[in-house]
């Protein structure tokens, strides 16, 4: 299933090269008229004159060995270009994912277990946050915390662990905002739903302490839907990362993808797209495994996406 998903997406990614306006060749030549000789050399070097399937095979074979070909624009191996950027992006997404899990679930629990003013406040603020696109969040965060208060740097990814955390805090918040709100709302709804179940009534009827009922029956069971939604949300962070990297001028995969796409550097676009798909699929797989571990009624293999 996993392999099939990856194979299908790799075909789509490769085919997109042929569907995009303008040929790779015109990108390579920059539109300048070149002698036939030069064009033939270029075509050979980048496998442009091969049939589509052969080209695809070359590319896939290389990709599996970590070789994504050569950048049309910079004339260096794509792998060397994207490896350091992938690390930055991975850090950013991981940071944002931690924020989503920790604060999303915590805020959701607070709303579910403290009805009244806390719950209403949580509902209103998450509604607003869930509707906030990451570029708006980025702009607001920069103007308040970087420009006005000067607590965090505006641009770049920083060097060294502490400096990196400082640099990536605002971008991670911007990236996490709407997902965090979504996870908080789902957490609240799941906990309230589980609290109404008959087996919770049984636990109450048996005179168990409330603390125990909440932990062992309500939260334990609500963890199943919460995990599913959180996983999907985190996977979607991978797709949203480009916008945030642009806004904060972080030299990561997302920003580089946009740059490469506009300069028609197809080898780079393909490599990054494939990498993002892999990241998405891997996250979903981890969620499926967790899901099966949390719910004894689900057997692994009968439920994979």
């Amino acid at each position: 299933m996993l392999v099939l998903t990856l194979l299908a997406s790799s075909i789509v990614i490769y085919a997109a090269l042929y569907l995009a306006p303008g040929t790779p060749l015109s990108a390579l030549t920059g539109g300048r008229p070149l002698p036939e000789e030069t064009i033939r050399v270029l075509e050979q070097k980048y496998h442009l004159d091969d049939p589509v399937l052969v080209g695809y095979w070359h590319w896939l074979n290389g990709a599996m060995h970590g070789d994504f070909g050569t950048s049309f624009v910079q004339r260096v191996p794509v792998t060397d270009l994207i490896a350091p950027r992938a690390l930055t992006t991975a850090e950013l997404v991981f940071y944002a994912a931690v924020l989503v899990v920790v604060f999303g679930v915590a805020i959701g629990l607070l709303g579910a277990l403290r009805p009244g003013i806390v719950d209403s406040g949580m509902l209103i603020s998450t509604t607003v946050l869930a509707a906030t696109p990451s570029f708006v969040a980025a702009t607001v965060l920069i103007s308040v915390f970087s420009v006005r208060l000067g607590w965090f740097p505006t641009l770049g990814a920083g060097d060294g662990l502490l400096d990196q955390i400082r640099h990536l805090t605002l971008p991670a918040i911007a990236l996490a905002t709407s997902s965090l709100a979504l996870v908080a709302r789902v957490t609240r709804a799941s906990v309230l739903e589980e609290a109404d179940r008959e087996h919770v009534q049984t636990a109450q009827a048996r005179g168990l302490p409330r603390r125990l009922i909440v932990r062992r029956h309500v939260l334990r069971n609500a963890a199943i839907p919460i995990t599913t939604v959180t996983g999907v949300t985190i996977a979607s962070l991978v797709a949203a990362v480009a916008v945030v990297e642009q806004a904060f001028n972080i030299d990561g995969l997302g920003a580089y993808l946009v740059e490469a796409a506009s300069s028609k550097d197809f080898a780079v676009v393909q490599a990054i797209s494939l990498l993002l798909v892999v990241a998405f699929v891997l996250t979903s797989t981890v969620v499926d495994i967790l899901y099966a571990a949390l719910d004894p009624r689900v057997k692994l293999g009968s439920h994979t996406s």
Partner: peptide, 24 residues
């Protein structure tokens, strides 16, 4: 007091499948 009383009463519900936590 209510909890203490509940612990002295055994309860059997109509639908055991709904009344027993499915994940434990």
């Amino acid at each position: 007091v209510v909890r203490a009383s509940r612990q002295r009463i055994g309860i059997v519900f109509q639908d055991p499948r709904a009344h027993i936590n499915p994940v434990r």
